[in-house]
Amino acid sequence: MEQETPAKESQRSHHDLGGASKFMCEAVDTEPHALTDFDKEVDALRQILGAKEVMSVDELRRCIEAIPEEEYHRLSYYRRWIRSITDNLLRKGVITEAELRSALDAQ
């Protein structure tokens, strides 16, 4: 068993964090952090898309897990979410990349 753990750990996906050696010595930031308007809007959007069956929570998770490892750990929680929500909306054709580009250009 003792030898099995490292071998097994090397197989994990980067979001599958239980017992991950690289975080075992990292301090837990236990201070309260108030959510920003950005955070709350993303959270609300996720709930609405779920309730309207545009995107399930499993689809949200899958596209969060698809974020490359370095980016996954660099992005805050809700920044991962908006990236995954956008990814899902594009994949499903709810919005097109052309629409998204023109909305971004119009900013």
Binding site: F38, L89, Q107
Partner: peptide
Amino acid sequence: ILDTPSDRLLAAVRDLLAQKGI
């Protein structure tokens, strides 16, 4: 396009979903 800064992504997605009535 997913590497766009998150705040801009949210604003754009929010506008598009509002336009589409979603």
